[in-house]
Design a protein around this nucleic acid. Structure first.
Lengths: 192, 192
DNA sequence: GAGTATACTTACCTGCAAGTAAGCTAAGGA
DNA sequence: TCCTTAGCTTACTTGCAGGTAAGTATACTC
């Protein structure tokens, strides 16, 4: 019992790590079973096929993110620290060896994913965008930010920048992310 | 002879198409040989291993891009049309079924690439950034744009946005790119 | 103590990936 | 005419991917 749950959790943990390091097709059952000292079939016992595992990883990701971002994603309060929370979180993810976000990991062969997984992923993106939109909106109302256009679109543009920045950071190192964040601050008229 | 050159060119053409559609690990020799009506071994004859093929594809990409972007990347003249050229080019790439740029295609397993390929890729990114930096700089001098900070960093930030935008466009359709471009225009203070 | 469920392992299977070696064919030169 | 070279095909090989079926050990239940 206890053993079993431990194994299942270890599989999830390892797979999660690999997924955010190498993407959906960047790891195999071997990469999980080897380090854990179990057999591939043990993974199949807990997750009959790979999609079952992915499904759980997305759920896991949601939970981890909600937990990690709970502080700065809290409603109300000043907007700048919330945005800075997002920056710090992104940097930390890279520094702990998770250069790919779930969206990026899944986007490789997005077309071939089952609808259910697509929907979960879309929902996650939508949630993030909704949060950032609110941050931008209240930030502008409270004169913390200045920017042109609709908050929803500006939010999408910032998220796209971070998304692209993470990809560039894999190639050119994490410092590129810090540079990009500085530019975003400048663009929003945030004065230190 | 003539046959041979045609086959080699067809392999390059098909591989190029597949690479920008599905990424480095998203296609196999089968995906090339099948449609062309040849055997896998024929590809190995022209390109002993996959990296030999990739090497040529990167070269091909450079040539295609230089040709496609020659008009708007020309030195001098107003900056806005040059930027618009980049936007139009990016949109066109998506619309003709090339949702991934070479940088993105290679970034999947960037670490495992031979140094030579990394260097070619880096050089390409540097070239693009240099070009956009110049466009932004002259655009600001000519009062076509307004933005905060250094042109080189702003250029990187715009390229990151486009990079991320292309990834999002694979998921949510090409319209997201048009939206992002509008926001970039707003941010640069471009008035229609 | 017999039966049953859980959590695996052992031992397979199929399929596809990249890659290779040897043979065939047509063209071109000595 | 013979020989060579280019440009393939045929027929493999190795290796890994995901996946399955049958067996085994342990614990839990009645």
């Amino acid at each position: 019992m206890t053993e079993a749950i431990a194994t299942r959790d270890q599989i999830i943990s390892k797979a999660f790590e690999l997924m955010l390091q190498r993407g959906l097709n960047g790891f195999s059952y071997r990469d999980i079973s080897g380090p854990l000292g179990i057999k591939n079939a043990a993974i199949h016992y807990h997750f009959p096929n790979k999609m079952d595992l992915i499904r759980v990883l997305i759920e896991e990701n949601h939970q981890v993110l909600r937990k990690s971002t709970a502080e700065f994603m809290a409603y109300g309060g000043p907007a700048v620290p919330q945005l800075e929370g997002l920056f710090a979180f992104t940097l930390k993810q890279h520094k702990i060896g998770r250069p790919i976000c779930m969206v990026g990991a899944l986007s490789v062969d997005y077309d071939e994913l089952p609808d259910e997984i697509k929907r979960a992923n879309d929902q996650f993106m939508k949630d993030t965008n909704t949060w950032l939109t609110r941050v931008l909106q209240t930030g502008r109302e409270q004169n913390e930010f200045t920017f042109q256009g609709e908050p929803g679109i500006k939010a999408m543009s910032i998220l796209a920048t971070i998304q692209g920045g993470r990809q560039l950071a894999r190639i050119h190192g994490v410092s590129i992310l810090e540079t990009l964040f500085s530019q975003i601050r400048l663009d929003l008229g945030i004065t230190p």
